[in-house]
């Protein structure tokens, strides 16, 4: 891999994370537990979509093959997607959606904080803008973890089940492969492995306040950095990419 290839891949990871999670949140549209939450979820989805567009446009420019944000979003198949496995998991109930959001927001907050000091100015700019948005997202999902964890018996049970169902997808966030290492050496990327202690501290604090039990590290799955995904991603893409694929000559 050349430096250019590595930066391209790195930007895809960032863009794909935001896009796939935004797509999942869009599925809630009109179905949230209350109108205020419908608005909040679309708000967060819109932020994520905006981030995805900035990262993917930049990725396309770095690659230099004329692929723009839409070419990258609509004409790649599963093996070329780089989003974390966590983010493609189905919405489930509201507890599941919020747990997924919380784990990612609290990771993304630290990652964007680090990336806003990137030596790559454009990346630093996108990260700084996204950090502001993620600060709000993290507050929103944190509040729900606490409300549902320390709410009724039913909500507590649902939330405990959700964090257990997602727990094994979390170690992947902190993996470092050759691309991550190279990006760190160049001062472009974030050392995500080093974010783990601070992430643990934040998450533990919230789980305690929510009266939830931190699950045992009994299982973990990984593979997204090499394009190995769960079966869910194929369906997300089939739905998302349908129109441009069915009518490849059309402009929209």
């Amino acid at each position: 891999m050349t430096d250019k290839d590595m930066l391209f891949d790195y930007l895809l990871r960032l863009g794909d994370n935001s896009l796939i999670l935004g797509q999942r949140l869009a599925e809630w549209c009109g179905h949230a537990p209350m109108l205020e939450e419908d608005l909040a979820l679309t708000n967060i989805g819109l932020d994520l979509l905006g981030q995805a567009r900035m990262f993917l446009s930049y990725a396309g420019e770095v690659e230099g093959n004329g692929r723009d944000e839409d070419r990258l979003a609509y004409f790649r198949d599963t093996k070329d997607w780089r989003n974390l496995l966590l983010l493609e998991q189905p919405n489930g109930d509201f507890a599941m959606t919020m747990a997924r959001q919380f784990f990612f927001d609290s990771f993304q907050y630290l990652q964007f904080e680090a990336l806003s000091n990137s030596t790559d100015e454009r990346l630093a700019g996108i990260a700084a803008k996204s950090l502001k948005e993620t600060t709000y997202h993290r507050r929103h999902s944190t509040d729900w973890i606490i409300r549902l964890g320390d709410g009724t018996d039913e909500s507590h049970e649902r939330m405990q089940r959700a964090i257990e169902a997602l727990w094994g997808y979390l170690p992947e966030m902190f993996d470092m492969d050759a691309v991550d290492e190279a990006m760190v050496v160049d001062g472009i990327g974030a050392d995500v492995a080093a974010l783990r202690p601070e992430w643990d501290e934040y998450v533990n604090g919230v789980l305690t306040e929510a009266t939830l039990t931190r699950p045992e590290d009994s299982w973990s799955v990984r593979g997204s950095r090499e394009g190995k995904h769960s079966e869910h991603l194929g369906y997300i893409l089939a739905e998302m990419q349908f129109l441009p694929r069915a009518y490849p000559d059309a402009k929209w």
Binding site: C29, L46, R53
Partner: peptide, 17 residues
């Protein structure tokens, strides 16, 4: 979830919001 470009998706999402 099926909007044919990311820009259209963003506009539609803002509209529905």
């Amino acid at each position: 979830t099926r909007a044919p470009s990311l820009k259209r998706k963003a506009i539609l999402m803002a509209k529905i919001q």
